[in-house]
Design a protein around this nucleic acid. Structure first.
Lengths: 121, 121
DNA sequence: CCAAAACCTGCAAAGTTGCGCAGGCTTGAA
DNA sequence: TTCAAGCCTGCGCAACTTTGCAGGTTTTGG
């Protein structure tokens, strides 16, 4: 029964794809909706080339989809539930050494789930 | 607010830790309960050295814990919910090209959730 | 048509990971 | 005490990733 092995390989591939802080931030940024490359670059304070490279990787694996309008390329999540699933991992993240309050998980989740990417720089 | 950045880094680190098919299989194998290194090596058909190396990595990040008895080292999951969370990712895995039935997700989940690691070789 | 904006891709340097292998430690049995 | 089982760690090589940079394509505006 090699199926189990195959599944574990595919799962590992998915996780590897997500295992980069830039890409995680991109995905969580796209949770709010469609956004173009330069918009993402500004929001995450990353060079546009890097954003483009990460998006191309995510696109190759169908995690995001592209829509072109004018000279802008707008990206959106193929399956927004993925972003929810990622946030479900926060309880397993060891952040107690860096945030000094107790309810760090709620804090962390709030940082992402709230529509706060626009409310503050 | 660098917190969001920090969280994404920690999350990425966790995902990187899980992004290896051997380690995924180890974690799912330990879902059933404690097991020693050679037991895991036999169950997953992997060289014991490799199993040991993976476990040492998981241990360093507190995903598993060790209990020594005699000359055997028994490992168990620090937080079994992690294994559940991993299985929740199966709907996002692209396995349609390799399993030819339709309900591949149920199939895949059954492969892991059932106590079938012993029922078949 | 021409130029600039917005992206994409190829490439090479630097860093990281995975793997087997050799060697070492600890425990239990003879 | 001596041996072997069971496990761990260090080392080195191969393979992969990340990143900036240079150069390319498409679209819009003049």
């Amino acid at each position: 029964m090699p199926s189990r092995l195959i599944v574990s390989r595919d799962l590992a591939e998915l996780l590897k794809l997500l295992a980069h802080s830039d890409r995680l931030r991109l995905i969580e940024e796209l949770r709010a909706g469609e956004k173009d490359v330069s918009g993402l670059a500004v929001a995450l304070e990353l060079p546009a080339t890097r954003v483009s490279q990460h998006l191309s990787l995510l696109r190759a694996h169908r995690l995001v989809e592209e829509r072109r309008h004018g000279r802008s390329h707008f990206y959106h999540l193929t399956n927004p539930r993925l972003a929810d699933w990622i946030l479900d991992a926060l309880p397993f993240v060891d952040i107690r050494t860096r945030l000094d309050d107790n309810d760090h998980i709620d804090t962390a989740r709030a940082l992402w789930t709230a529509a706060d990417s626009r409310s503050k720089h």
